[in-house]
Amino acid sequence: MTDTKTPEEIESIIESIRPCFQCGICASSCPVFRVAPEINPRHAIDEIVKTGVIEPDGTEWSCAYCLMCEQRCPMGVSLAHLLVAVKNISTEKGNAPEGLPEIIHSILSTGVIAQDSDLDKMREKYDLPPLKRPTAKEVRKVLELTGATDLLELYQSKGVGSD
């Protein structure tokens, strides 16, 4: 699988968050923390810096990817980068949230995120042209070469996104 993070990559991610001095601005800027205080980006960073490993616990998926934390961090810590890495590792462990593998499957089979062909009917209603679609072959090729189809198989063996 091409996607697995190498130890060097993990090390460089941890290096990049080391400047964090636990000021908590990220948490106080986080909309998720505002309504669900059990999810705290400051704690997430602290845990990784302290232990030296990235061990996804599931809360990473609650991040709304609003990017306010990284915008306001006085130390220039890129939480978005970190969170993507944590989510990628979580995905590899089979813990992507429900619905996510289906989206990848939709892109694999249609190139876009849309459930059925009837959706073009909605476009017709407003006199809009059907959108041009890429060939299934080229989309599959890109997904194969970047490891997404292998990852998808992991979820399909659990009965997700198969048809």
Binding site: D3, A85, N88, A96, P101, I104, T146, A148
Partner: peptide, 8 residues
């Protein structure tokens, strides 16, 4: 997609 695979 990016959460699933950054490369993809």
């Amino acid at each position: 997609v990016r959460s699933f695979s950054d490369e993809t």
